[in-house]
Design a protein around this nucleic acid. Sequence first.
DNA 1: CGCTCGGTTGATGCACATCAAAGGCTGTGG
DNA 2: CCACAGCCTTTGATGTGCATCAACCGAGCG
Lengths: 234, 234
Amino acid sequence: MPDTQKSLKSALAELSQFSIFQGFSSAAIESLCHEGQVIFSPHRETLFRFGEEAHFFGMVMSGAYKLSRATPQGDDAIVHFTTVGDVVGAFIMAQEKPCYPVSVTAMGPSRFLKIPRQNYLRDWKQHSDLILRIQNLLSTRMSQMHSQKALIKAPLAAKVAALIVDLLHRHEDSEALVLPLPLTRREIADNLGASVESVIRVMSEWSKQGFIQTTDQQIRILKLEKVIDQIQKY
Amino acid sequence: MPDTQKSLKSALAELSQFSIFQGFSSAAIESLCHEGQVIFSPHRETLFRFGEEAHFFGMVMSGAYKLSRATPQGDDAIVHFTTVGDVVGAFIMAQEKPCYPVSVTAMGPSRFLKIPRQNYLRDWKQHSDLILRIQNLLSTRMSQMHSQKALIKAPLAAKVAALIVDLLHRHEDSEALVLPLPLTRREIADNLGASVESVIRVMSEWSKQGFIQTTDQQIRILKLEKVIDQIQKY
DNA sequence: CGCTCGGTTGATGCACATCAAAGGCTGTGG
DNA sequence: CCACAGCCTTTGATGTGCATCAACCGAGCG
């Protein structure tokens, strides 16, 4: 038995935990993920590249990935951070000859369930509740982009604060005070359209004030209220 | 026969033109839009308001609407411009108690097909190809937001140019050189997160150069290549 | 040990916001 | 019919948040 299938079989129990598969039997999940693979991505490995033809979609099983795009200036703009349980690429599967609209790169060691487009066209498309779940994920993402857009004119501190709060809320356990993904200042900057230095100036001020604390890429929030205050302040 | 139903009946022929209803029979469309109304919105009338419970979704039949959100500073951020054929609010219909994530306001006199949420839950949800079409519209919108995000660090001129080019491409006939909606400098500014004055400075320069020309809110592009150049230039 | 990567700090400059003032145009009410 | 208010556009003067540039430190790593 090839390695990939073995890994899929052994992952079945894990898969049934994810909200997208809630209420599906093991057999149903197995059929939906037929020929799928659990991919291990080391830190900074790129899973899909912007513009490539999209033969696969899938779901983040552990860790996190950033969705990014090259800017005309040559650097990257991070469009979205995907975390555990997020679906990637599913909503372009129905297009004729879909191409990835963003590059997908691991942030820290991560695992991804990679499913052939075939499956989408054959199985997923027909399950209207499956499509609706995907649509809900997509619409959450959309609404998050909207919130971010509402802050364009706000000072940088507000944007950073909003990003932190958003990422914090992704945790299942809503009491958690640690961001669910390793995040460098550069990545924050690339997501907000700011420079690294400016982000650093904002965040080291907060560190001094004791609002947050970072130990190698892990950001811990000490005074959440204070951070939330920054969003409104102007 | 009440006025609203009459207007729906008489609109059936028109409805069948829209891509979302392609391939559906008159009877099918009528059932999908059962109890729907064609709403006429005068300029600047607000159809839905941010945060309100969403009892309706629908489609732009003529004119255009802006989707906006209040910023913490009190002014509005325009999140998206919807034009003819766009669907509004459909992707939140499947949520338990959906609320509009944006306000929807007419730009110039417009018409909107307003459909009760009921219909979505009863009919639309089951038609998986209908959902897929909506998903495609949504994913187009998403990808447009991504492009815009890739330009955050670009100079204002590039953002304005990109917006104009994007709106121009919405026309069925791709040769058209007039924007498909009346657009004030303030709306452009609110969409890009810039100040009115800055937008004006960029655009009046282009007018002087003869790239564009505006006669009461109607923006005509005279030298498309020159405008496109602005996106890359930095 | 040189390399890359992440974080930090200070000096300088610019793109754009802000403020102020004015003119045209439309609708509205006295 | 005129006055007035609101909206859109425009232009100039002034200010500032943040980018940019430059330099340095510590940690991990082949």
